[in-house]
Design a protein around this nucleic acid. Structure first.
Lengths: 229, 229
DNA sequence: AATAAGCAGATTATCAGACAATCTGTCAAT
DNA sequence: ATTGACAGATTGTCTGATAATCTGCTTATT
């Protein structure tokens, strides 16, 4: 009984934290779209908390880059240019490759086991086509990957980057044919890690992100050609 | 008259922002030490603003990792373990290498010029021994390096990491003999970038951080042996 | 004496209300 | 068409109040 987890859910640390989560989810689900203004009073009413909690939560999201606020004009859901999107994917590739390498070389057997389960679940979700299940599975996979890297800073930065990818409002997974490739690429990553092959894991991670980036950026380029109206 | 800068200083965006800066500086200057509690009301009095501004600034610093707050107990200046310090330097090496490589391959001639000026100023400051001048020079160098990388995410992450390094409360620059090496390493970086040699720039950056890490971690290991009292 | 229970003080979390500062859009004046 | 003034909207900030929670100390229990 070495490490039984006795923590309880700690239901609701603080109101502010819950507001943060709500806002984060509203943004990544697309309910709040990039460029949209977020008016304090409206948020107070729709969420049902005072301005204090709203404002503090907004500061947090601002620091995470999800919103941008201008003095005396208030916050706006961040927009991300094509150029920035490309930069985002570059850093992701860099950090995830590193995470994969570290995982392969130093991860625990337990972590590897969890990773392979996550991959299996992702593949199953892909086969079944359950949208929300798919997102959950992919999230679980990445959580495990970052966890296994053993580096809290990498984990934190990648989490932030993942959140920001949602600002692009397009999951590369929805591109036709992309999903199957994605499953295959993730299998490669897990296989390399299971093999304890650091360089190969890094390469697989990089390949995965580069492919996702290509699809996403192509799409962005196409659609941004006619958004000047 | 291509790019004359007409911006005025925009003296004081918001009070909150000034508070953030004050707190950040208080932490990195060591006036607030790691582990120290930060009591709201005391901060209000010493800085002379209301709780609103203080609390919102604290949320920002929390997101940056400079402070850690526990529900209903308030914030404390973050502490950083040996393990985490090692991880921090690893990520820094990764990101700065990337920045150096990108700079070398894609930076503008103007950026390169600025970088070399920053190196010269750093060397001069090192020769003169002016402590605050040295810090300012090094900051300028890094600002330039991150700027030249052309990646806003890298820039943001490295800024955050640099701020957190100060939590270790020891500038590797103060180690005897280290400073001269440091100057030399930085010259190498600038030289590689000026040569447009990406891989060499990356290697030089990595070497520089690895050396700094070695000094810092050795020091930490030594002093942490007898801090159990 | 060691432990458990409970109380009091301190501090945070959150709300409500107020007021000044600033931004934005509109409409009149030149 | 450009400028200037004005009104409405919204944020930035302060103050005061109350509930919730943490911490340490006192007291009761075994």
């Amino acid at each position: 009984m070495g490490d039984m987890d006795l923590q309880i859910a700690r239901q609701s640390a603080t109101l502010r934290t819950q507001v943060e989560d709500k806002l984060r989810q509203a943004i990544s689900s697309g309910r709040f779209k990039p460029g949209q203004r977020l008016v304090e009073r409206e948020l107070c009413e729709s969420i049902g908390v005072g301005r204090t909690s709203i404002r503090e939560a907004l500061r947090q999201l601002e620091a995470e880059g999800l919103i941008t606020s201008y003095p005396h004009r208030g916050p706006v859901v961040s927009t991300i240019t094509y150029e920035e999107a490309a930069q985002l994917y570059s850093v992701r590739a860099l950090l995830e490759s590193y995470a994969g390498k570290e995982f392969a070389e130093n991860g625990t057997a337990q972590d590897i086991h969890t990773l392979n389960e996550a991959v299996a679940e992702f593949a199953a979700a892909a086969a079944n086509g359950g949208g929300s299940r798919l997102i959950k599975a992919k999230t679980a996979f990445y959580d495990c990957l970052m966890q296994g890297s053993g580096n809290v800073f990498v984990k934190q930065m990648l989490t932030s980057l993942h959140n920001r990818v949602t600002l692009l409002r397009m999951t590369s997974m929805t591109q036709p044919g992309r999903l199957n490739h994605s499953v295959e690429e993730i299998r490669e990553i897990a296989a390399a890690i299971t093999d304890r092959n650091g360089p190969k894991a890094a390469a697989a991670c990089k390949y995965h992100i580069d492919m996702a980036a290509k699809v996403a950026l192509d799409y962005l380029r196409k659609t941004s050609e006619n958004d000047g109206d």
